[in-house]
Amino acid sequence: SDAGGMAGAFEGMVGRHPEMARIYQLITQIAPTPTTVLITGESGTGKELVARAIHARSGRQGQPFVAVNVAAIPDALIESELFGHERGAFTGAHAKKLGRFELAHGGTIFLDEIGSLRLDLQTKLLRALQEREIERLGGVRAVPVDVRILAATNINLKNAVRERAFREDLYYRLNVVPLHVPPLRERREDIGALVQYFVRKIARECGRDVRGVSAGALEVLTRYDWPGNVRELENVLHRAVVLARSPVIHLQDVPLDVAMPETGSRLGEDTGPPLREALEQFERQYILRVLEGVGWNVSHAARRLGVHRNTVLTKLSGWGIQRPGSGEGRSLSF
């Protein structure tokens, strides 16, 4: 497969799903312009990668790219972090400090989780967008700034506007070009390429000899819903690469809450699946693990399981799982 070749094909973004192709095209179109972009999508979908790609393909690529997660900065510090402060602006302000806007001068500032910005600071941000100037905390004069503003949110800003938690005029200023990044569960066909990309990258970084992913493991990774999206997939693969006992990641290297999501994390809750579903889940995982353990020799696995060979084949067929090497085997090796 040439998935490895396309792995970082578009500024480190991986995937050929039509939605991703549309994003790549949109980035190419808007990057050279000074347009403000609002990137929306769930947590972990790669919104910062999109922002970095816009910067990298713009005329500002040699200038700073400054990323700020607005929600991660304590409320008391956010104003001075973004806009800087003058000496003596508050207790402990012993020296003048440049804010992120001034540090990004000539380049791009990326404001993530913009929906959590306080209303009074939304006003200052609006001024930066409109007048291209900011005022340091404790300052009396406006400081001109030349920055391109990219913003991202994982909440519905339109609702926040309706609820008066977000300024309507700022919303329209930011939302000049909306760009939505789909959740991973909506582009499952990209999971194989992402797995290949991350396993290669992590194996190289960690000095591990891991070169492939078994059919059973790949099937489970593709079926899982990934509430934490690409970030969660990367995290699971990192753990799998580090703990893998062979050059191929097998089903037993995949965490149980990913392999059996309906039972794993919810056993302690009242909302677990009915017994029949849980048994089916377990049977599927158990048979796949036994098959992997015997190198997909169905007769050998059937003997171990104490069932007829045809029973195993019927189960596999019912689950839509192909044996590796049977034409369209789903294992990955690289």
Rank of each mutant, 00 (worst) to 15 (best):
P261W: 14
V230L: 09
L251G: 03
L174P: 01
V199C: 02
E234I: 10
I155N: 01
G216M: 09
V242T: 05
F166M: 00
G264H: 06
E186H: 12
A244N: 03
Y197G: 06
V177S: 00
L184D: 10
A193S: 14
V213N: 02
R204C: 07
L150H: 01
A160N: 03
N154W: 08
F198P: 06
P182Y: 08
K158Q: 14
G264Y: 08
R200W: 01
S246Q: 09
E219A: 11
V181S: 03
D257K: 15
Y171A: 00
R167Y: 04
V236P: 00
V177L: 11
E283K: 12
G207H: 11
Y224V: 08
R164Q: 09
V220Y: 08
D257S: 15
L170F: 05
L184F: 10
L194W: 05
A193G: 14
R167N: 04
G207L: 09
R211S: 05
G272W: 14
Y172N: 05
S214K: 05
K158V: 14
L184Y: 07
E269V: 11
L184N: 04
L174T: 02
L275V: 08
R162N: 07
E262V: 15
I191Q: 03
E262N: 15
E205S: 15
L243N: 02
N154S: 15
R239E: 05
L237V: 01
V195C: 11
V242E: 04
Q281A: 07
R239W: 01
F198K: 10
A244R: 01
G272S: 11
V230M: 07
K158C: 08
A151C: 03
E262S: 15
P255I: 07
W226L: 06
L179R: 07
L256T: 10
P274H: 06
L275A: 12
A215M: 13
D253A: 09
Y224N: 03
I249S: 01
H238W: 10
V254F: 04
P261Q: 15
R164V: 07
A203D: 06
N156E: 13
P247C: 06
P261C: 15
T153D: 04
I149Y: 02
L233T: 04
D270Y: 12
V199Y: 01
E269Y: 04
F166I: 00
E219G: 07
I149F: 06
R188I: 09
R164I: 05
R239M: 01
L267M: 14
G212Y: 05
E232M: 03
L218F: 14
R223Q: 13
Q196W: 09
R223L: 13
R245E: 12
A240W: 00
H250D: 04
R208N: 03
V199L: 07
L194Q: 03
A151F: 00
Y224F: 13
V242D: 02
V176T: 13
G207S: 04
R200Q: 07
Q281M: 10
R231T: 06
R245T: 06
Q196K: 15
G264P: 07
V213I: 04
Y224H: 06
I249H: 00
R188M: 12
A160V: 02
A278Y: 12
M260Q: 09
P274C: 11
K201I: 08
K201D: 12
F166Q: 00
